[in-house]
Simulated scan of single mutants.
Amino acid sequence: MGRLSFFLLALLAVVGFVNASSLTIQSPRFTISSSDATQLRSEQLSLTQKPDALKLGAKDALKLTFQVVDKEEGKGLQPHQTFLRFYDEVSGEEGIQPVKVTASGKAKFELNMARPPLSIPPTTSANPLKVTLLIGSFTHPPVKIDLFDLFLPESLPAPQHPEEPNFHLLPEIHHTFRPDQKLPPKFISAVFAAAVLGGPWVVLLGLWTQIKPSTPRLFSPHILPFILSLTAFEGLLLWYWVALKLGDVLLYGSILGVVTAVTGKNALSTMSDWRLAV
């Protein structure tokens, strides 16, 4: 039952809106004047036929007056919304300007080209703007009236912001990469790797022959730990080359350094004792 009542009320409201009297305007007139208040053109507007296109100069002003009335009662009233639409058919851009209407329905709109509103679309000297009056009311059907075509001075280009060049598209950056590094032959790499790894041992053995140590003394518990610590250093460098990182090498190398220093000092002391004994 509630839904049926709501439907009947909505139907009655629609029927009442359709049967409501419509709005129209009376005594529409426009006046074009120059900056020194000289009247350039003034005409009464017709609701059935548009006048010749209006043209405003850079300092001219357009004044439009009319009264919104109820067609049946002929009484002026104030609609809820009244706008002028400025539309460019070529670019498709439009601008909307509100029009103030008094309680008696009298309306007045002024367009001064010395201070044009920001909502007016960009204009050219070749294309006019279509000016349309739009009236909206909660109690009357909406009204749309084509008033006239309007030529405005050509719009100036927008001023350039000081930082605008910073947002322009920059030239594409082309990188020139160096050619891939040429690796030496594997044989040469192997020779230099053997020289790096075996060089210290050749020098050590050469110095060792100068003191002519006996073989049993070379494997003495006082000498052998130093030889093994040097061998461990060589293995650590080889491991670093293959898999280790620098932090691991520094950690393990610091430990081996302490061991090598202790064993080396012990080995030198032992060898000095041997030379004194000889």
Rank of each mutant, 00 (worst) to 15 (best):
A190I: 14
L276D: 14
T263P: 01
E43S: 14
A243N: 09
S46Q: 04
L230F: 05
T48G: 14
V203F: 13
K55Y: 00
T132Y: 01
W241G: 06
P216F: 04
S35F: 00
W201K: 05
I96W: 13
A37I: 06
L23P: 01
T31V: 11
A267I: 08
G264F: 11
L256P: 02
V202R: 04
L134F: 13
S220Q: 03
T215N: 06
S189H: 06
S21V: 08
V278N: 12
P225F: 06
N127L: 02
V191E: 06
K186R: 09
V15Q: 13
L197Q: 05
F177N: 10
T82K: 02
A194L: 14
F86G: 01
F151K: 09
I255N: 00
A243M: 07
V68C: 04
L134E: 09
Q44I: 09
V249A: 13
E72G: 10
H175G: 00
L183V: 10
S119D: 07
I32Q: 02
E73N: 11
S42F: 02
Q44R: 15
Q39Y: 00
F7A: 07
A10D: 01
V99G: 04
K75W: 02
A53E: 08
F7V: 11
S5V: 15
G2D: 14
F17G: 07
T176L: 03
L45I: 07
V278M: 12
H175C: 02
S33P: 00
K144V: 10
S254E: 06
I211R: 14
L47N: 00
S137Y: 08
L236D: 02
S155Y: 04
A267F: 03
P159D: 09
Y240N: 12
G247A: 12
A195Y: 04
V143A: 05
L156D: 02
A267V: 05
S269F: 07
Q210A: 11
V262M: 11
S269K: 03
A13R: 10
K55L: 09
F138L: 15
S137G: 05
L111F: 07
P216R: 09
K265H: 12
A190F: 11
